[in-house]
Design a protein around this nucleic acid. Structure first.
Lengths: 193, 193
DNA sequence: CCCACCTCTTGACATTTGTCAAGCCTCTTT
DNA sequence: AAAGAGGCTTGACAAATGTCAAGAGGTGGG
């Protein structure tokens, strides 16, 4: 069960675990199952956990004044989800996180994460790599959101995450791209010719 | 000259420098002046430096197929600019960075930064804080770009960075908001009533 | 001092995207 | 099998934003 986490950390740290170190990691994370629709975080609450997804998928989203959902991030197997601002500042979150499918995760609190980062070099290496990657990815997503048309954003999504198009309902994909479900449907039809 | 860097690091690390540590920092950074319009980074080159702005302002932007500039980030006094992806992966950058005004910066290479982070705890604390803040800020900017209308993005900018509205030409502000200069002019007129 | 250039504004029109309503299909529940 | 819910599509129209063109005003270099 922890093997995919192990592989993940070793991959992004470019390093391997000693058994004793990995035991520490196993003891720190808690395993939990979420039913489809179940919340890991609800707006207004303080985010308690970072979740590493073992199986299934989740989404991080806000709900605006009109009740419309805006998906900021999808998480699938081997992704992290959590509201980092709320986690570290202990402030009420503006976002929700729930399970799109039945989902299994490994949970870790902010303090535990800091603890592991401080004691295990392999862990802090991984964090460092993830920070770099996140920085680049965010920069690109900001650029795309501000510079590309809806159609071009769809094509980018298709190129970078073709699996998403199959896996998630179009209403959610539309929300992720910042467009309505109707526009998504029309753009998709046009683009898939 | 190095005092604002010192204050900045101490602020974000919530810690104070020993004189010997600060000597190391002073020796590591190089001071440089950029004339208005001069480039720190040009598309296709590998980004060599992170720049800490002492005085003046710079912008990070891409140029699309039609020749239109898309500003991803403004940098003013006490901000960092650099293309982190290019810096760490040593890949050619897709972005440009140039000086909007005559600008003074302190430069540091990626290796030097890594060196300082590894040897000075105060430095790594600062980096950690900046990563957190960047993560949150990026998340918000992505959310705003995908969920808000042009007018609401303008109002957000006005709220969060009122100084930008005075300091930068409207063409650049429009680009930063992902709209045309004409739309910016109209929205501004409407919003300032 | 004047010209050339740049920024900003405004108008008319085009294009993109959103809104609302209707209908279809599939799946689940009863 | 019937009923209902949810997701997807389509059409007609509305609203937001872009494009193109023209002109006003300011500014720096010659």
């Amino acid at each position: 069960m922890y093997e995919s986490l192990r592989a993940y950390i070793e991959k992004y740290a470019s390093d391997t675990f000693s058994e004793t170190d990995f035991e520490v990691v196993k003891k720190t994370f808690t395993h939990k199952r979420f039913k489809k629709g179940q919340f890991l975080l609800q707006e207004g609450d303080v985010c308690k956990y970072n979740a590493f997804i073992l199986k299934g998928s989740m989404r991080l989203y806000s709900v605006d004044a009109k009740g419309i959902e805006h998906i900021i991030q999808f998480g699938i197997e081997n992704w992290w989800v959590g509201d980092r601002e709320s986690l570290t500042m202990l402030t009420p979150s503006k976002y929700n996180i729930d399970a799109i499918e039945d989902t299994e995760v490994l949970l870790i609190t902010s303090e535990e994460l800091q603890q592991l980062t401080a004691t295990l070099p392999i862990f802090s290496k991984m964090i460092h790599t993830l920070n770099q990657r996140n920085f680049s990815a965010s920069q690109k997503r900001i650029h795309d959101a501000l510079s590309l048309t809806a159609e071009d954003r769809f094509l980018e999504l298709q190129k970078n995450h073709p699996d998403f198009l199959q896996r998630f309902p179009q209403t959610m994909l539309a929300s992720y791209l910042g467009i309505t479900a109707e526009t998504y449907s029309r753009i998709r039809k046009k683009a898939l010719k």
